[in-house]
Design a protein around this nucleic acid. Sequence first.
DNA 1: CAAATATTATTGGATACCCAATAATATGAT
DNA 2: ATCATATTATTGGGTATCCAATAATATTTG
Lengths: 117, 117
Amino acid sequence: MDQQNDVCCAPTCCDMRGFLSFTILWQLMKKDMYGQELAKALEKMRGTKPNPGTLYPALKELEKNGMVTTREEGRKKIYTLTEKGRVGAQEACDYFCRVYAPIFEEYNQSKEQVTQV
Amino acid sequence: MDQQNDVCCAPTCCDMRGFLSFTILWQLMKKDMYGQELAKALEKMRGTKPNPGTLYPALKELEKNGMVTTREEGRKKIYTLTEKGRVGAQEACDYFCRVYAPIFEEYNQSKEQVTQV
DNA sequence: CAAATATTATTGGATACCCAATAATATGAT
DNA sequence: ATCATATTATTGGGTATCCAATAATATTTG
């Protein structure tokens, strides 16, 4: 019933890869998360869960670059933004939103028109 | 003076590659363009002009996949969306906007707060 | 305790996009 | 006609992300 709220699946006309690390940083701005928690949050956004062979190397790279730190709680490894990571995430958000704003605004306008019939 | 309207440059905290073909399709929904015209439009959006070693193979791939057709006008090679390309571009827009809407909405809200001081 | 589940993690192959450098050629300017 | 510019295009190296398959181990459940 609320199927239209799901992202469902990526289109086939062109590659839709990218911005995984950026999206991880954005998620971590909201709250600390462990790996699988992040995977589920990304699945909710994108419709597909990132492959472990993609997610864990990305997290390792973010840690290597000083964007996140980790602590362990039992089996779980919890990721936290560093200050550098928080600043970087904010800059990345600004960049991303300025670049793609035209696409979004157009999309929102077309949705309004459909709603206002 | 209107420097804040420029995208300026990509952040360094994480990779910001991706969605080149998608952005090309989105641009072509507006109007037909030749290669360098597309390059300039992309530069205006992203702050950097795509490298020819990236742009031309991407265009070739879109043509190979039946998303665009080309015609030549003098030296210029003009790209036009096919019907398949137009449908695909619309689907890709829908997907992209649904996935990244949370990031945009948050960004817009934070901008409103700054404006309304 | 034993079995099932959850979580972290690696390997390896494919592909899209990043870049610098280089080239050919058509058009426009002097 | 000559030179400068614009446009298309390729090569080749690097990296992030995509995927399937596999594994080790801690926690939870029966």
